[in-house]
Design a binder for these strands. Sequence first.
DNA 1: TTTTGAGTTGTTCGA
DNA 2: GTCGAACAACTCAAA
Length: 493
Amino acid sequence: MTAIWWIRRDLRLHDNAALTAALSAGGAVAPVFILDPVLLASAYTGARRLAYLEASLRQLDADLRQRGSRLIMRQGNPAAVLNQLAAETKAVAVHALADVSPYAERRDAAVAAHLVAAQTPLHLHPGLTVLPPGDVLTQSGAPYTVFTPFSKAWQMRLAMLPSPKIQPAPDHIATPADLDGLPLPTLTPLSASPLFPPGETAARRRLAQFVEDGLDEASIYAYGEMRHRLDAAGTSALSPYFRFGQLSPRLAVAAALEAIDRAPNAAARQGAEAWLSELIWREFYSHILYHFPHVRGRSFRSAYDGIVWQNDPQAFAAWQSGQTGYPVVDAAMRQLAQTGWLPNRARMIVASFLVKDLLIDWRWGEQWFMQQLIDGDPAANNGGWQWSAGTGTDAAPYFRIFNPVTQGQKFDPQGSYVRRWLPELARVPAKYVHAPWEMPAADQRASGCRLGYDYPAPLVDHQQARARALSTFAAAARPLISGVSTAIHEFNN
DNA sequence: TTTTGAGTTGTTCGA
DNA sequence: GTCGAACAACTCAAA
């Protein structure tokens, strides 16, 4: 008797409800990962994330082999592949973790329908988030659309539930020996990221270091302040592990709660609470995508679909390649292109610049991020972009426009971050490093950074761009809102 | 049903 | 240099 463990974005053996369910049948388990041509060809997929997936699958295979099992890789339409595999193994069931992204829901519905015909049920288990979408609702049963009340309700709901038993990785997994699969690796020639060694062991080691080391700047207790610093590693840097499920979110939340409990002082406690809050943001955007799938293509609030974008392809290309002339923006965009990852503060700075300063559609940025990011997650990425654009849930007030110079001076005061990613600014004095256009010609020559020659002049004037954004957003949103409310008013009368 | 308090992450201006 | 207020108006969620 065999059960299939269909692995999608849950590349872990610990605390995995799908694996546990497959094992609990008492027979063999066939762990399968299916390369889906639809996802491989998607404009929201990128080579770097595929390379990271490849390396992570290889690590999962190694972990499985230590337990007498192995990973079975196949390629094709998931419904067809699973039907074939179910027939080969005479599987009694397929177990997977439920995924709320619109494509995943369509795919899983199709797979379930096909498998019913083969009398092999598809069981979807919670586990991508700590609390499954639909589990956190207002008193009237509606989904939350504002973060703070969601967060409170989420924490209350979690406290009500019995504390979770975190399943350790099983010692042994019996797997049918005669199954064919694709060789590993098969995806891309890019090497894996040195910043995020793949696998659940590496993920749990990083989590343990983050929550235990109270002195380090990269500690949960310093997180409150240090997470914003561009010139230091102040974030947990766990996002790729969450993206591919190499780290159980329940494990992370348990670690955060424990850290809050034993915080040595108020500041440390505040840091740990801030990190818990970030974990809840992951949950929030996942729930939002589940309840409001239209956010994938449109504004959360339809009123903001009326923004008139500039969408200048040359400006977009300058942003993508880190050639806007604003050092902190360009440094972040080059870090993204070179490493496939950015700390949250850098993501906000470049998103604000694209959407507000360049007036380029947030969807362009969203797609570029999905192509570049190792941790690219449909729910979190979309939520972040809509938040930055001011079109989303709980959006920032329209006048909250980041000043790229101020942000640089605040979060990279010596300019070390900027110099690290922009070698042409290596010798520019700190005084000018975030605004090199202010540098006198003599200093430009002396530092080897001639404006418009070694480094571009600013693509736009921020003060002018800010004014343009304010008027554009105001003009776009207001007539629509008042038009709708006028219509409702007339309807009611 | 109506009312009330509140809403991640910022910037600028003027005292 | 530091500080507080203004930047608007709307919608959410609970009382």
